[in-house]
Protein backbone atom coordinates (compact mmCIF):
# COMPACT_ATOMS: atom_id res chain seq x y z
CA UNK A 1 0.00 0.00 0.00
CA UNK A 2 1.33 3.43 -0.80
CA UNK A 3 -0.31 6.77 -0.37
CA UNK A 4 1.35 9.95 -1.46
CA UNK A 5 0.54 13.49 -0.55
CA UNK A 6 2.76 16.09 -2.07
CA UNK A 7 2.74 19.79 -2.49
CA UNK A 8 4.74 21.07 -5.40
CA UNK A 9 7.52 23.43 -4.49
CA UNK A 10 9.11 24.60 -7.72
CA UNK A 11 12.85 24.60 -7.47
CA UNK A 12 15.77 25.10 -9.73
CA UNK A 13 19.44 24.78 -9.10
CA UNK A 14 21.43 27.71 -7.98
CA UNK A 15 25.15 28.26 -7.76
CA UNK A 16 27.25 27.62 -4.69
CA UNK A 17 26.07 29.65 -1.71
CA UNK A 18 27.73 30.70 1.51
CA UNK A 19 27.88 28.13 4.25
CA UNK A 20 27.47 25.29 1.74
CA UNK A 21 30.45 23.47 3.11
CA UNK A 22 29.26 23.43 6.67
CA UNK A 23 25.88 22.13 5.53
CA UNK A 24 27.43 19.37 3.40
CA UNK A 25 29.69 18.36 6.24
CA UNK A 26 26.79 18.17 8.69
CA UNK A 27 24.72 16.19 6.19
CA UNK A 28 27.51 13.68 5.69
CA UNK A 29 28.12 13.26 9.39
CA UNK A 30 24.44 12.86 10.26
CA UNK A 31 23.65 10.48 7.38
CA UNK A 32 26.66 8.35 8.27
CA UNK A 33 25.25 7.86 11.77
CA UNK A 34 22.42 5.87 10.14
CA UNK A 35 19.20 5.05 11.95
CA UNK A 36 18.53 6.61 15.30
CA UNK A 37 17.93 4.33 18.26
CA UNK A 38 14.36 2.92 18.22
CA UNK A 39 11.99 5.21 20.12
CA UNK A 40 9.13 3.18 21.63
CA UNK A 41 5.53 4.38 21.43
CA UNK A 42 3.88 5.55 24.63
CA UNK A 43 1.10 2.95 24.57
CA UNK A 44 0.60 -0.32 22.72
CA UNK A 45 -1.76 -0.36 19.75
CA UNK A 46 -5.10 0.11 21.46
CA UNK A 47 -8.81 0.30 20.81
CA UNK A 48 -9.63 3.70 22.38
CA UNK A 49 -7.07 5.50 20.23
CA UNK A 50 -8.27 3.65 17.14
CA UNK A 51 -11.86 4.54 17.94
CA UNK A 52 -11.05 8.24 18.16
CA UNK A 53 -8.94 8.24 15.05
CA UNK A 54 -11.42 6.28 12.93
CA UNK A 55 -14.21 8.56 14.06
CA UNK A 56 -12.25 11.72 13.31
CA UNK A 57 -11.40 10.47 9.85
CA UNK A 58 -14.83 9.03 9.20
CA UNK A 59 -13.50 5.49 8.69
CA UNK A 60 -16.29 3.15 9.75
CA UNK A 61 -14.61 -0.13 8.85
CA UNK A 62 -15.65 -2.54 11.68
CA UNK A 63 -12.48 -4.60 11.32
CA UNK A 64 -10.78 -1.91 13.40
CA UNK A 65 -13.25 -1.68 16.24
CA UNK A 66 -15.69 -4.60 16.30
CA UNK A 67 -14.02 -7.71 17.71
CA UNK A 68 -16.80 -10.05 16.67
CA UNK A 69 -16.76 -8.84 13.11
CA UNK A 70 -12.95 -8.84 12.99
CA UNK A 71 -12.88 -12.53 13.99
CA UNK A 72 -14.70 -13.38 10.80
CA UNK A 73 -12.51 -11.19 8.57
CA UNK A 74 -9.36 -12.20 6.71
CA UNK A 75 -7.40 -10.80 9.66
CA UNK A 76 -8.99 -13.19 12.10
CA UNK A 77 -9.07 -10.48 14.76
CA UNK A 78 -8.89 -6.75 15.44
CA UNK A 79 -6.30 -4.75 13.49
CA UNK A 80 -5.33 -1.09 13.39
CA UNK A 81 -5.76 1.22 10.41
CA UNK A 82 -2.36 1.14 8.65
CA UNK A 83 -2.37 4.92 8.24
CA UNK A 84 -2.18 5.21 12.02
CA UNK A 85 1.45 4.05 11.96
CA UNK A 86 2.77 7.46 12.99
CA UNK A 87 0.11 7.86 15.67
CA UNK A 88 1.58 5.11 17.84
CA UNK A 89 4.90 6.85 18.28
CA UNK A 90 3.80 10.45 18.58
CA UNK A 91 5.57 12.27 21.36
CA UNK A 92 2.50 13.70 23.06
CA UNK A 93 1.86 17.33 23.89
CA UNK A 94 5.36 17.99 25.20
CA UNK A 95 7.56 15.72 23.13
CA UNK A 96 11.10 15.18 24.25
CA UNK A 97 13.27 15.01 21.18
CA UNK A 98 15.68 12.09 21.15
CA UNK A 99 19.29 13.23 21.47
CA UNK A 100 20.26 11.29 18.36
CA UNK A 101 17.32 12.50 16.24
CA UNK A 102 18.87 13.23 12.82
CA UNK A 103 16.08 15.65 11.84
CA UNK A 104 16.82 17.77 14.85
CA UNK A 105 20.57 17.73 14.22
CA UNK A 106 20.22 18.60 10.54
CA UNK A 107 17.70 21.37 11.03
CA UNK A 108 19.95 22.86 13.72
CA UNK A 109 22.86 22.86 11.27
CA UNK A 110 20.70 24.62 8.69
CA UNK A 111 19.40 27.13 11.23
CA UNK A 112 23.01 27.89 12.00
CA UNK A 113 23.73 28.48 8.31
CA UNK A 114 20.82 30.92 8.12
CA UNK A 115 18.20 28.61 6.61
CA UNK A 116 15.80 29.25 9.40
CA UNK A 117 12.38 28.62 7.89
CA UNK A 118 10.81 25.28 7.19
CA UNK A 119 8.05 23.83 5.07
CA UNK A 120 7.10 20.19 4.59
CA UNK A 121 7.00 19.34 0.90
CA UNK A 122 5.95 15.72 0.65
CA UNK A 123 5.43 12.55 2.53
CA UNK A 124 5.03 8.98 1.34
CA UNK A 125 4.10 6.06 3.55
CA UNK A 126 4.49 2.33 2.87
CA UNK A 127 2.73 -0.24 5.03
CA UNK A 128 4.19 -3.75 5.21
CA UNK A 129 1.47 -5.27 7.29
CA UNK A 130 -1.51 -4.52 9.54
CA UNK A 131 -0.80 -3.97 13.21
CA UNK A 132 -2.71 -5.96 15.78
CA UNK A 133 -4.16 -4.59 18.97
CA UNK A 134 -1.69 -4.87 21.83
CA UNK A 135 1.45 -4.76 19.72
CA UNK A 136 4.29 -2.46 20.82
CA UNK A 137 5.68 -0.22 18.11
CA UNK A 138 8.97 1.69 18.00
CA UNK A 139 10.25 4.11 15.39
CA UNK A 140 13.67 5.00 14.02
CA UNK A 141 14.69 7.97 11.89
CA UNK A 142 17.43 8.21 9.33
CA UNK A 143 18.65 11.13 7.27
CA UNK A 144 18.69 9.85 3.70
CA UNK A 145 19.59 12.82 1.61
CA UNK A 146 20.28 16.55 1.71
CA UNK A 147 20.25 18.42 -1.58
CA UNK A 148 20.82 22.05 -2.26
CA UNK A 149 21.11 24.88 -2.11
CA UNK A 150 18.14 25.34 -4.44
CA UNK A 151 16.42 28.53 -5.39
CA UNK A 152 12.70 28.10 -4.61
CA UNK A 153 9.67 30.35 -4.63
CA UNK A 154 10.05 30.66 -0.87
CA UNK A 155 13.74 31.44 -0.88
CA UNK A 156 17.03 29.61 -1.18
CA UNK A 157 17.00 26.33 0.68
CA UNK A 158 17.91 22.69 1.14
CA UNK A 159 15.70 19.64 0.72
CA UNK A 160 16.01 17.09 3.52
CA UNK A 161 14.81 13.55 2.95
CA UNK A 162 14.23 11.48 6.05
CA UNK A 163 13.13 7.89 6.41
CA UNK A 164 11.05 6.76 9.36
CA UNK A 165 10.71 3.04 9.99
CA UNK A 166 8.24 1.53 12.44
CA UNK A 167 9.19 -1.76 14.01
CA UNK A 168 7.53 -4.43 16.11
CA UNK A 169 10.56 -6.04 17.71
CA UNK A 170 12.92 -6.29 14.72
CA UNK A 171 10.24 -6.54 12.05
CA UNK A 172 9.69 -3.42 9.95
CA UNK A 173 5.91 -2.86 9.73
CA UNK A 174 5.70 0.57 8.08
CA UNK A 175 7.96 3.18 6.53
CA UNK A 176 7.66 6.83 5.70
CA UNK A 177 9.68 9.04 3.42
CA UNK A 178 9.37 12.62 4.64
CA UNK A 179 10.82 15.53 2.72
CA UNK A 180 11.03 19.07 3.87
CA UNK A 181 12.54 22.32 2.70
CA UNK A 182 14.66 24.41 5.05
CA UNK A 183 15.00 27.81 3.51
CA UNK A 184 16.28 31.31 3.93
CA UNK A 185 13.16 33.45 3.35
CA UNK A 186 13.27 35.20 -0.03
CA UNK A 187 13.07 38.70 1.40
CA UNK A 188 15.24 37.85 4.36
CA UNK A 189 12.28 37.92 6.63
CA UNK A 190 11.85 35.67 9.63
CA UNK A 191 8.34 34.36 10.16
CA UNK A 192 8.49 34.74 13.90
CA UNK A 193 10.05 38.18 14.13
CA UNK A 194 8.28 40.77 16.23
CA UNK A 195 6.43 43.64 14.69
CA UNK A 196 8.85 45.71 12.74
CA UNK A 197 9.02 49.40 12.84
CA UNK A 198 10.23 51.75 10.30
CA UNK A 199 12.58 52.46 7.62
CA UNK A 200 12.50 53.45 4.04
CA UNK A 201 15.87 53.65 2.48
CA UNK A 202 16.88 56.86 0.90
CA UNK A 203 19.86 55.12 -0.63
CA UNK A 204 17.53 52.62 -2.23
CA UNK A 205 18.27 51.11 -5.55
CA UNK A 206 15.25 50.64 -7.80
CA UNK A 207 13.59 47.82 -5.93
CA UNK A 208 13.24 44.64 -7.86
CA UNK A 209 9.68 44.32 -9.08
CA UNK A 210 8.50 41.45 -6.95
CA UNK A 211 5.18 39.84 -7.13
CA UNK A 212 3.92 37.20 -4.80
CA UNK A 213 0.87 35.93 -3.05
CA UNK A 214 -1.27 38.64 -1.53
CA UNK A 215 -0.84 39.23 2.18
CA UNK A 216 -3.63 37.54 4.08
CA UNK A 217 -5.01 38.67 7.40
CA UNK A 218 -4.69 36.75 10.64
CA UNK A 219 -8.29 35.88 11.47
CA UNK A 220 -9.41 34.78 14.89
CA UNK A 221 -12.57 34.53 16.98
CA UNK A 222 -12.59 38.28 17.53
CA UNK A 223 -12.38 39.20 13.88
CA UNK A 224 -14.00 36.32 11.96
CA UNK A 225 -17.37 38.11 11.71
CA UNK A 226 -15.71 40.87 9.69
CA UNK A 227 -14.14 38.55 7.11
CA UNK A 228 -17.26 36.40 6.94
CA UNK A 229 -19.06 39.64 6.21
CA UNK A 230 -16.80 40.70 3.37
CA UNK A 231 -17.14 37.24 1.84
CA UNK A 232 -20.91 37.70 1.98
CA UNK A 233 -20.72 41.20 0.50
CA UNK A 234 -21.30 42.99 3.80
CA UNK A 235 -19.16 45.56 5.57
CA UNK A 236 -19.71 44.63 9.20
CA UNK A 237 -18.90 46.90 12.11
CA UNK A 238 -18.58 45.61 15.62
CA UNK A 239 -21.32 46.80 17.96
CA UNK A 240 -21.26 46.19 21.68
CA UNK A 241 -24.07 43.84 22.68
CA UNK A 242 -24.59 45.81 25.87
CA UNK A 243 -23.96 49.51 25.30
CA UNK A 244 -24.10 49.64 21.51
CA UNK A 245 -20.66 51.19 21.00
CA UNK A 246 -19.49 50.91 17.39
CA UNK A 247 -15.87 50.02 17.01
CA UNK A 248 -13.41 49.28 14.26
CA UNK A 249 -10.92 47.64 14.37
CA UNK A 250 -12.79 45.30 16.69
CA UNK A 251 -11.76 43.54 19.88
CA UNK A 252 -13.15 41.05 22.37
CA UNK A 253 -14.01 43.49 25.18
CA UNK A 254 -15.97 46.72 24.92
CA UNK A 255 -13.66 49.56 25.90
CA UNK A 256 -16.67 51.55 27.16
CA UNK A 257 -18.65 49.10 29.29
CA UNK A 258 -16.46 46.02 29.56
CA UNK A 259 -18.97 43.65 28.00
CA UNK A 260 -17.59 40.67 26.12
CA UNK A 261 -20.63 40.01 23.95
CA UNK A 262 -19.94 41.87 20.74
CA UNK A 263 -22.45 41.85 17.93
CA UNK A 264 -22.23 43.72 14.66
CA UNK A 265 -24.21 45.83 12.27
CA UNK A 266 -23.93 45.93 8.53
CA UNK A 267 -22.68 49.35 7.46
CA UNK A 268 -24.46 51.13 4.67
CA UNK A 269 -21.10 51.16 2.88
CA UNK A 270 -20.89 54.90 2.32
CA UNK A 271 -18.30 57.27 3.65
CA UNK A 272 -15.75 59.95 2.92
CA UNK A 273 -12.00 59.81 2.41
CA UNK A 274 -10.42 60.93 5.70
CA UNK A 275 -6.86 60.46 4.44
CA UNK A 276 -5.15 58.53 1.64
CA UNK A 277 -1.82 57.63 0.13
CA UNK A 278 -0.61 56.67 -3.32
CA UNK A 279 1.82 53.81 -2.94
CA UNK A 280 4.56 53.53 -5.57
CA UNK A 281 7.32 51.45 -3.98
CA UNK A 282 8.50 49.06 -2.71
CA UNK A 283 6.44 46.30 -4.33
CA UNK A 284 3.52 44.93 -2.35
CA UNK A 285 2.83 41.22 -2.89
CA UNK A 286 -0.25 40.67 -5.00
CA UNK A 287 -0.88 44.37 -5.72
CA UNK A 288 -0.45 46.41 -8.86
CA UNK A 289 1.23 49.75 -8.33
CA UNK A 290 0.68 52.61 -8.02
CA UNK A 291 -2.11 51.87 -5.61
CA UNK A 292 -4.36 54.31 -3.79
CA UNK A 293 -5.19 53.30 -0.22
CA UNK A 294 -7.81 55.32 1.60
CA UNK A 295 -8.76 55.66 5.23
CA UNK A 296 -12.51 56.14 4.97
CA UNK A 297 -14.75 57.57 7.66
CA UNK A 298 -18.04 55.72 7.34
CA UNK A 299 -21.40 57.40 7.72
CA UNK A 300 -21.68 55.29 10.89
CA UNK A 301 -18.68 57.18 12.30
CA UNK A 302 -15.85 54.63 12.32
CA UNK A 303 -12.86 54.50 9.96
CA UNK A 304 -11.92 51.59 7.71
CA UNK A 305 -8.90 51.23 5.41
CA UNK A 306 -9.11 49.90 1.89
CA UNK A 307 -7.84 50.18 -1.66
CA UNK A 308 -9.50 52.95 -3.63
CA UNK A 309 -10.24 52.11 -7.26
CA UNK A 310 -12.06 53.70 -10.17
CA UNK A 311 -10.41 57.10 -9.94
CA UNK A 312 -7.19 58.66 -11.19
CA UNK A 313 -4.80 58.99 -8.22
CA UNK A 314 -4.40 62.69 -8.97
CA UNK A 315 -8.16 63.21 -8.58
CA UNK A 316 -8.39 61.73 -5.10
CA UNK A 317 -8.91 64.21 -2.28
CA UNK A 318 -9.84 64.23 1.36
CA UNK A 319 -13.63 64.42 1.63
CA UNK A 320 -14.28 62.42 -1.53
CA UNK A 321 -17.55 60.46 -1.27
CA UNK A 322 -16.93 56.76 -1.65
CA UNK A 323 -18.79 53.48 -1.42
CA UNK A 324 -17.63 50.02 -0.58
CA UNK A 325 -17.24 47.09 -2.94
CA UNK A 326 -15.62 43.73 -2.40
CA UNK A 327 -12.73 41.92 -4.01
CA UNK A 328 -12.09 38.24 -3.44
CA UNK A 329 -8.41 37.48 -2.86
CA UNK A 330 -8.56 33.73 -2.34
CA UNK A 331 -11.03 31.10 -1.19
CA UNK A 332 -11.13 32.45 2.34
CA UNK A 333 -10.42 36.12 2.08
CA UNK A 334 -12.38 38.96 0.51
CA UNK A 335 -11.20 42.52 0.99
CA UNK A 336 -13.34 45.62 1.31
CA UNK A 337 -12.36 48.22 -1.31
CA UNK A 338 -13.58 51.73 -2.09
CA UNK A 339 -14.71 53.48 -5.24
CA UNK A 340 -16.14 56.95 -5.85
CA UNK A 341 -19.82 57.03 -5.03
CA UNK A 342 -21.94 57.21 -8.13
CA UNK A 343 -25.52 57.49 -6.87
CA UNK A 344 -26.91 60.52 -5.09
CA UNK A 345 -26.37 60.74 -1.39
Amino acid sequence: MTSTASSATAAKDTGPARDNESVHAAAERISAAGESRPRPGRDPVNLPMIHNWAEALGDGNPVYTNAEYAETSVHGGLVAPPAMAQVWTMGGLHPEPAPDDPMRAMTAALDEAGYTSVVATNCEQTYHRYLRHGEHVAVTTKLEEVTGPKRTGLGEGWFLTLRYTWYVDTEAVAEMMFRLLKFRPADGDEPARPTPEPAGDNTADESDPRTGSPILPAINRDTAYFWEGTAAGELRIQRCGRCGLLRHPPGPMCSECGATKPTHLVACGHGQVYSYVVHHRPPVPGKELPLVIALVELDEGVRVLGELHGIDPDEVHIGLDVEVFFRQVDEQVTLPCWRPRTEGK
Binding site: P185, R193, P283
Partner: peptide, 18 residues
Protein backbone atom coordinates in the same frame (compact mmCIF):
# COMPACT_ATOMS: atom_id res chain seq x y z
CA UNK B 1 19.78 41.37 6.07
CA UNK B 2 16.15 41.89 6.97
CA UNK B 3 15.03 45.28 5.64
CA UNK B 4 12.24 46.90 7.63
CA UNK B 5 11.41 49.15 4.68
CA UNK B 6 10.24 46.22 2.57
CA UNK B 7 6.82 44.65 2.92
CA UNK B 8 6.95 41.85 5.48
CA UNK B 9 3.96 39.60 4.90
CA UNK B 10 4.64 37.53 8.01
CA UNK B 11 3.84 40.35 10.41
CA UNK B 12 0.22 40.37 9.30
CA UNK B 13 -0.20 36.62 9.55
CA UNK B 14 1.19 36.18 13.04
CA UNK B 15 -1.15 34.57 15.55
CA UNK B 16 -0.63 37.39 18.04
CA UNK B 17 -2.55 40.54 18.88
CA UNK B 18 0.03 42.44 16.82
Amino acid sequence: GQRFGQVQPAVAGAATSA
